[in-house]
Computed example of a mutant assay.
Amino acid sequence: MIRISAHSSRELQAVILATKNVDRELRAQIRKHTRQMILPEWQRATAEHAATRLEHRVLAQTARAAVSDQNVTLKAAQIGRALQGGLKPSELWWAVEFGADGKRLDYTGRRGSRTFPVKNRRTTQQLRPRNQRGYVFHPAAAAIIPRLASLWTQTAARTIHEAFEGK
């Protein structure tokens, strides 16, 4: 999870304070407009960082954004519904995001009463090599967070300004 501290940015502090001090209907409009601006940017960023078809299906196509009065939450792979083929993004997102070790597995298989050796089974062939910094979500979030903070600030200021002008 990547967090931004509002203590280091006067603009973000102003947005949070402004949304606390306006009426409920205007706060709802700010949240709605902010989500409309942020969601396409977040989906575009995750799609740009996804290189494989599996990454697109699990992370990029499930990218969502939630906006509250206090924060913006970027999500991916939080859907519980299984994709075609049975993979549930909410359960196996970590393997797609961080990769896996290229281990080969040796074991003894059994079919009925007959046993047979299985050598060098590659169980993680479809995944990228292990990377602690991630491949899609974390790089996309690091690249897009300054833009999203700017959009949130501008959207809140514009919505409040339009409300004061009576539009």
Results as ranks from 00 to 15, higher is better:
100 A>L: 09
150 S>R: 11
162 E>K: 13
11 E>D: 15
145 I>S: 15
96 V>P: 01
73 T>F: 00
78 Q>E: 11
9 S>W: 02
150 S>H: 11
138 H>V: 15
164 F>N: 10
49 H>F: 14
21 N>L: 15
108 T>Y: 10
42 W>C: 01
43 Q>W: 07
120 N>H: 10
99 G>F: 09
44 R>Y: 03
99 G>P: 01
17 L>Q: 15
97 E>D: 06
93 W>M: 04
119 K>T: 13
141 A>Y: 10
70 Q>M: 06
30 I>H: 05
167 K>C: 03
17 L>D: 13
53 R>W: 08
143 A>N: 13
68 S>V: 08
89 P>D: 08
74 L>D: 05
24 R>I: 14
119 K>I: 13
118 V>A: 05
27 R>L: 12
78 Q>L: 05
88 K>D: 01
43 Q>P: 01
14 A>N: 04
118 V>G: 02
20 K>I: 04
125 Q>I: 12
66 A>H: 13
77 A>V: 09
94 W>E: 07
108 T>I: 15
80 G>R: 15
68 S>M: 06
4 I>C: 06
105 L>S: 09
49 H>R: 14
81 R>V: 06
70 Q>R: 14
76 A>P: 02
8 S>A: 11
34 T>V: 08
116 F>Q: 11
106 D>E: 12
67 V>Q: 03
38 I>H: 02
124 T>R: 14
143 A>T: 13
96 V>L: 08
128 R>H: 08
86 G>C: 05
25 E>F: 08
164 F>K: 10
113 S>F: 08
145 I>V: 15
95 A>K: 09
111 R>T: 12
23 D>I: 06
107 Y>A: 03
111 R>K: 14
33 H>T: 11
136 V>L: 08
116 F>E: 09
25 E>W: 04
5 S>N: 09
72 V>D: 00
33 H>I: 06
112 G>Y: 09
107 Y>S: 02
156 A>L: 08
135 Y>P: 01
9 S>V: 02
7 H>E: 14
72 V>E: 00
6 A>H: 08
46 T>G: 02
60 A>I: 07
30 I>R: 06
89 P>F: 10
162 E>A: 13
112 G>K: 07
13 Q>N: 10
150 S>W: 09
6 A>V: 15
73 T>W: 00
25 E>N: 11
107 Y>H: 09
57 R>P: 00
100 A>M: 15
101 D>M: 09
95 A>C: 01
6 A>W: 07
122 R>C: 00
157 A>Y: 00
102 G>H: 13
29 Q>N: 11
118 V>H: 04
21 N>G: 15
164 F>Q: 10
133 R>I: 07
152 W>M: 07
43 Q>L: 04
38 I>W: 03
43 Q>M: 10
121 R>D: 11
131 N>P: 04
90 S>G: 00
109 G>D: 03
79 I>Q: 14
42 W>R: 06
148 L>Q: 14
39 L>D: 03
44 R>D: 03
113 S>R: 15
31 R>I: 03
11 E>M: 10
116 F>C: 09
151 L>T: 01
61 Q>V: 00
11 E>Y: 10
42 W>L: 04
